[in-house]
């Protein structure tokens, strides 16, 4: 049986919008049907790849996926309830071409902003979930991204829920000037309150997580996980190379490097994440009330 979307142009599967900009030498095949794996050069049917959560079945390369795909992989079926989905950025400081950029981001991603927030269950465990959207201005953080994440942590604090967050970001959104920088402080404040309330926050860092997002909520979790080979850093590799005027060693700032340096707890492949997160959520489930005392009294 052929998947029914095989010949339809996917809205934004794989690395469409972003990769088009960076890759010029595309293999000579219809990109809708086949994809060449950057990890092992194998030609893969897009439908096979998509059935495998966009992880190369041959070498395990993790293709970039959009936020909705990620939610469908992680959250229990039909459990995700989106919050603040209608908030949209405005060109508050009148930055040139920002309105146009926002419009293109909307067309590229079919999303209104660079993060999707809501509640869900994962393996039956209730939680708040945020997933950043790489196809919306490379997940950059402006006022609305900061606001949505802040509201989610505030909601989670109020309702005693853990937060699971998937990050992907080029950093703070330049087009909102200082207001985007302030979102780092704002989100950090909300994360701190959630943490001080004794609640669990797990961050899953995906490729790439850099800049102002790394220097705020991506690095503030109780448990920090990462997808294989994800680039994770404060400064991007190009900026570092310009600063130090030398080439960076292979694997620098990748997920495995961050585990080695002590900044990430574990690298978890995409197809194992749901089960892994469910287990972590179960470890932190609220204890049944007064069981100990009742047992002690029974004795």
């Amino acid at each position: 049986m052929l998947p029914k979307d095989l010949f339809k142009k996917p809205m934004n599967t794989l690395e469409s919008a972003y990769e088009k900009l960076t890759k010029t030498a595309a293999p000579d095949v219809p990109s809708e049907m086949c994809t060449s794996c950057p990890g092992c050069r194998a030609m893969l049917f897009t439908s096979d790849l998509s059935e495998n959560d966009n992880v190369c079945p041959k070498c395990g390369h993790h293709f970039r996926i959009n936020a909705r795909q990620r939610i469908s992989i992680i959250a229990d079926e039909d459990s995700f309830q989106e919050q603040n989905g209608d908030l949209r950025s405005k060109n508050v400081i009148g930055f040139p071409n920002y309105d146009k950029k926002l419009k293109h981001a909307y067309l590229d991603s079919a999303e209104k902003e660079a993060v999707i927030c809501g509640t869900a269950t994962i393996g039956g465990w209730p939680c708040c979930l945020f997933v950043m959207e790489p196809y919306f201005m490379m997940g950059s953080m402006g006022t609305i991204v900061g606001e949505k994440i802040t509201r989610l942590f505030e909601y989670a604090t109020e309702h005693h829920l853990p937060v699971i967050g998937f990050t992907v970001s080029g950093g703070a959104r330049m087009q909102e000037g200082i207001l985007s920088l302030m979102q780092m402080a704002k989100t950090s404040g909300a994360v701190k309150r959630h943490s001080d309330a004794g609640l669990l926050y797990i961050a899953v860092l995906t490729d790439p997580t850099t800049g102002g997002v790394t220097a705020s909520f991506a690095m503030e979790a109780d448990i920090t996980l990462a997808e294989p080979k994800a680039l994770i850093g404060f400064a991007g590799p190009r900026v570092i190379e310009q600063t130090i005027r030398q080439k960076l060693p292979a694997g620098f700032q990748r997920a495995e490097f961050q585990v080695e340096k002590g900044f990430v707890d574990e690298v978890v492949p995409r197809r194992e994440q749901k089960e892994y997160l469910a287990r972590l959520l179960s470890f932190h489930a609220p204890l049944p009330h007064n069981t100990d005392t009742e047992e002690a009294q029974a004795e």
């Binding site: 780092m184 402080a185 950090s188 404040g189 994360v191 701190k192 309150r193 943490s195 001080d196 790394t214 220097a215 705020s216 909520f217 991506a218 690095m219 503030e220 850093g233 404060f234 400064a235 900026v239 570092i240 600063t243 130090i244 960076l248 620098f252 700032q253 340096k261 002590g262 900044f263």
Partner: peptide, 26 residues
């Protein structure tokens, strides 16, 4: 700006700043 070099990244520039943001808030 915070330094953008190999050692700074190896020792967690992002994590160090993030921790300050959280801790200073409270």
């Amino acid at each position: 700006g915070a330094y953008c070099g190999i050692a700074a990244e190896e020792r967690g520039q992002g994590q160090a700043i993030a921790e300050n943001l959280m801790e200073m808030m409270t």
